[in-house]
Amino acid sequence: MGRSVRLSNRKQSNTLGLTVIYSLLSIGLIFMIFPYVWMVLASFKIPAEIYNRFLPTQFTFEHYQTIFSLGTTGSSHTFIKSIFNSLFVSSITTASVVFFGAVTGYALARLNFPGKTFLNNFVLFQMLFPVVLFLIPRFLLMLELGWINTYQGMMAPFMISAWAIFLFTQFFKTVPQTLIDAARIDGCSELRIIFKIILPLSKSITMIIAIFTFMAMWDEFLWYLIVTKDYNLMPLSVLLGLYTRGEYSSYPGILTAGATLLTVPILALFFLFKKYFTEGITMSGIKG
């Protein structure tokens, strides 16, 4: 009798606890998504309502119309071009990081050659150094190569990533050797082994590397700011940043429309590939 009373008490306090937890989590969640909701609503509001009304009384597309037709002297649709620039730079870099990451990771995990240990250590060594050390000399290198204001210049520092090589190397060590041997007996070249056998088995690590690289490139600001001077070549992040600090600083409608355009693609990517985002972060938490 006493025991069952205790149990039901416990159950009650558990339900109470859970109610509190769910309420707190929900309140927190509202705070987390509020800036997004406000941003999207603001981009459709008439200017008078942006600052001091949360819900708009009327919708307008004028900010998007303005932003899409914005041009600079001698050219038009600068904003649309910048979206293209961002997509172009981010996709090429992502493909390159995955390709060279997989190839190098395979060699470092599965082949034996003198100097391998050194290279493995070098990959770790590279990951230690902060970007800030490289800003200036890399900029000077771009000057020397004549790559200021070019796509190559924007992408050069990001084309091969030590972080991706490290993750691929770790993961490829777990692929069974028999699969590789069987493929070799069938006369597969090493490149075919990597891309037809190993990568399909490593789908989740590949997706994690691709998604995080794409996101980082889309979000990149400082390097693009340093190497691009021509408005028509700028990725969206820099163009929007310069507009915000420059001539459009007092047009909140245009700015929130721009911010929405910068956010929506990555947010879409996030909802499509939630699983890999979570997995990637959890992995960094375990491995460090």
Binding site: G28, L29, M32, I33, P35, Y36, W38, M39, M215, W218, D219, F221, S237, V238, L240, G241, T244, L255, T256, G258, A259, T260, L262, T263, I266, L267, L269, F270, K274, F277, T278, I281
Partner: peptide, 15 residues
Amino acid sequence: YLMSYVSAGVAYSIV
């Protein structure tokens, strides 16, 4: 709770 993590620096600074 993870949604905010994917927002671009420039975009959330503006907001």
